[in-house]
């Protein structure tokens, strides 16, 4: 068993665009669920809209990379508004039902052949990196040390992703310690009580839905920045992976989503290397290497259940502040 390779791969995933993308999406979900109490089960839809908004406006309309990113973020804000107007007046559970359906609608719209010219249907979109790479100020070459050896383009994606994440964390952190965040937490606890104190609960929930949606779209863009936008990525299981990352770190915290995504991806990468290696070494004689690779998704599901039951507050959360049992 090549332990060095396994650990090198695992550590390398700390800086992967997937980790940064998940962290951004989980931060958006923290705004939705952890602070505003909005049960959004369609985070994959927001990520898809961000990624496709970026890819389509780059490829079909030839927008420069920064404008294409703004289009992706703007599209997700509009998606949040459309979703929020009919559902935010309903009780929380209904938002969960509507968002899970809406995310599927979005994915199927990108998958259908009807818009093949723009979306690439099942093949997805790729080759939109030109404008972004042209803006790269780093000279060609390979930089870094240990497990973190990347090309100039790979560094460019990671640096921009980390800058976005830093700004997002700062904004959410400032919002949640302001009176605005106080109102939001009040709505999470009891919407009627907050309305009785003269706050427009609907407007606050809408603002939270849009903010979280834009953050999730930013996550989707970072995730797709260096590779391709494919409808197979934005499936419901992506939503649950982001939920797992969020709950692992702590839903009602600012740094929890970061830590959760980090642990999630390091563990995922470790298991995807380690489990097949175990089979190869003959430790798991009852399964094939491919089966062993899929085993990790089963473990994610088990982990999500155990988290919700035994550690609902997550690693960084205050046990008193967020529990599922009132």
């Amino acid at each position: 068993m090549d332990w060095l390779q396994i650990f090198s791969n695992s550590l390398s995933s700390i800086l992967s665009p997937a980790t940064i993308g998940y962290a951004l999406a989980a931060l958006g979900l923290a705004v939705h669920f952890g602070y505003a109490g909005l049960l959004n089960m369609g985070i994959a839809g927001f990520m898809a809209i961000g990624a496709y908004g970026y890819a389509i406006s780059s490829l079909s309309f030839g927008f420069p990379w920064w404008l294409a990113i703004l289009v992706g973020l703007g599209a997700s804000a509009i998606f949040a508004l459309i979703l929020g107007v009919p559902t935010l007046r309903l009780r929380g559970d209904y938002l969960a039902i509507v968002t899970i359906a809406a995310a599927e609608v979005v994915r199927l719209l990108f998958l259908t052949t009807a818009f093949d010219e723009y979306t690439g249907s099942a093949d997805g979109l790729s080759g939109y990196q030109g404008s972004f790479r042209d803006a790269n100020p780093i000279p060609d070459g390979i930089y870094g040390f240990g497990p973190w050896m990347y090309t100039a383009n790979e560094w460019w994606v990671r640096i921009m992703g980390l800058v976005t994440l830093a700004i997002a964390v700062l904004v959410v952190w400032m919002l949640m310690r302001s009176p605005w965040g106080r109102v939001l937490k009040g709505i999470r606890e009891d919407e009627d009580a907050v309305r009785a104190l003269g706050k427009n609960a609907f407007a606050y929930k809408m603002q939270a839905l849009v903010l979280g949606g834009v953050l999730a779209a930013a996550g989707g863009i970072v995730y797709a920045l260096d590779r391709a936008a494919s409808p197979g990525v934005y499936v419901t299981s992506l939503t649950f992976f982001v939920w797992t990352a969020l709950l692992l770190g702590g839903a009602a915290t600012v740094f929890g989503p970061l830590l959760g995504s980090l642990i999630f991806w390091v563990l995922q990468t470790f298991l995807s290397n380690f489990l097949p290696a175990l089979v190869q070494a003959g430790v798991l004689p009852f399964m094939s290497q491919i089966q062993a690779g899929t085993l990790r998704f089963i473990l994610v599901g088990v982990a999500l259940m155990l988290l919700v039951i035994f550690m609902p507050q997550g690693i960084l959360g205050n046990k008193k502040e967020l529990t599922f049992v009132k």
Partner: peptide, 17 residues
């Protein structure tokens, strides 16, 4: 309807217009 997972003083500050 005390907002259980806010502190007492946060509950109070929420009341101000």
């Amino acid at each position: 309807k005390a907002l259980g997972l806010l502190t007492v003083v946060e509950n109070m500050k929420l009341g101000a217009k």
